[in-house]
Amino acid sequence: MDTVVWTQDLTKRYGRMDRVRQLNLTVPEGVIYGFLGPNGAGKSTTLKMLLGLVRPTAGEIELFGKNVNSANRLQILRQVGSLIESPSYYGHLSGEENLHILQKMRQLPERNVQEALKIVRLEAHRDKKVSHYSLGMKQRLGLAGALLAFPRLLILDEPTNGLDPAGIQEMRELICSLPERYDMTVLISSHLLSEIDQMANVVGIIRDGEMIFQDRLERLHARGQKQLALRTDDNLRAETFLSARNVPVQRNGQWLLVPNLDDDTVAACERLLLQQRIHLLRIEERQKSLEDIFLELTERA
């Protein structure tokens, strides 16, 4: 699988503060890459650096295998559509006129305007002034603008911000359909884990400007494997006893955490502990939610 976006040690410093620090981002072709992080983590700054709207303090950016510099930036960006922070529009013009401006600037065929309007379901409102659009409609117009050239890479920065639940659902379905329908790679940022969980195949998690996790979504889910939590009347002896029998044990307050063992092994452990006169008081099955994993990753322990 080819890499569409690749950065190495990408850094942005404002004064003495690193907004983004030595970020290595790799977005494979054809995926929906969820760029996740709390507010102020550096997501928008990173995306702006990819688009050349913010100059990196250090590091390298490659798009479609080409090193991006001021000379070739606009040429490379012809294959990129973007919607950063909030939709861009001329409020005094209609939705269709707005798209016509972008179409002419990008020297695209006229039919792309109609197609983009159709994709985002704004055909019925094409003649309405954008200043009279609702926020959801403006967001959809922004997406239409980004899709206008049917780019190979679509960069969306929190595209569901300010939308109502129905709008979020609609936007999500639309974004999910893009790689298959138009052979696009989507790089989408969000601070909402549930959103990324429902859309992305690959996830990058950023915290305080640093990438702390980057892999397929399943790998992130795998971190939330089931565990068994035990409480005995002598946790210290139980821990030593189980460890001596190659059962990995983690202490967690008054609990001992062991991997999710099969029923027979659990029964055997219980019997053995009893033989040692260690009484089992409680046993629970636990599973970390994706939210727990995200919080664990993004909050410093």
Binding site: L51, L53, L74
Partner: peptide, 14 residues
Amino acid sequence: HKGTMLRQLYTIQP
């Protein structure tokens, strides 16, 4: 400025 168009335009033209 009003519709934050500069962000969009600077990715299309110098």
